[in-house]
């Protein structure tokens, strides 16, 4: 029963994944996709909580046309973004470039997580050391083996 159930699960999950990919991984016009990706990285100056992509404000429409223009002229993504940064300043980018002062923004979360993990590991090591000193060791090799032997038995019986 368990096995048949498991195979059902396999089929279900694989179906799910595949259907998602086949249904939606179709390509639209290449240029329109690039326009959208780029417009999504720019902040709408009029309605500031939206991206240029999501906004219907006049300026955003102009910007979208401009992006399409620049792409058709053969500019790279970086060049297109640079065009807008030159005119509007860094403010226009919805995700600040990874340079200079902004590095503080990008690396801080990682640093904090790293420090937290290190502190955690250290305190865990200390704990197990104190425990060993008191003489309450974790499971011995023999005990470990015993557990896995019993454990295997349980599964064999199934």
């Amino acid at each position: 029963m368990m096995t048949s159930f498991k195979s059902c699960l396999v089929i279900f999950s694989s179906l799910l994944l595949f259907s998602i990919n086949f249904l939606y991984a179709q390509s639209e016009s290449e240029i329109e996709n690039r326009v959208r990706t780029l417009a999504n990285q720019l902040r709408c100056p009029t309605c500031q909580s939206q991206s240029v992509k999501d906004s219907d404000a006049g300026l955003s429409l102009n910007m979208k046309i401009k992006i399409r223009d620049l792409i058709q002229k053969g500019q790279s993504d970086a060049e297109v973004l640079d065009y807008f940064v030159k005119r509007y300043g860094e403010w226009i980018l919805r995700s600040p470039p990874k340079s200079g002062f902004n590095l503080l923004l990008w690396i801080m979360p990682g640093i904090i997580m790293l420090i937290a993990t290190l502190v955690l590991l250290r305190s865990l090591k200390q704990k197990s050391r104190t425990v060993d000193a008191i003489g309450k060791p974790s499971l011995s090799k023999a005990e470990d083996l015993e557990i896995s032997r019993r454990f295997n038995n349980v599964f064999k019986n199934k």
């Binding site: 999504n40 990285q41 902040r43 500031q48 909580s49 991206s51 300043g89 860094e90 403010w91 226009i92 980018l93 919805r94 995700s95 600040p96 200079g100 002062f101 902004n102 503080l104 923004l105 801080m108 979360p109």
Partner: peptide
């Protein structure tokens, strides 16, 4: 929290206005 208040830090410490939105 950091991403939300960082524009304030950037203005206060580096004197520039930046945007931190969904892509970040």
């Amino acid at each position: 929290l950091y991403g939300t208040v960082f524009p304030l830090l950037a203005e206060g410490l580096a004197d520039k206005k930046i945007s931190i939105q969904a892509p970040f």
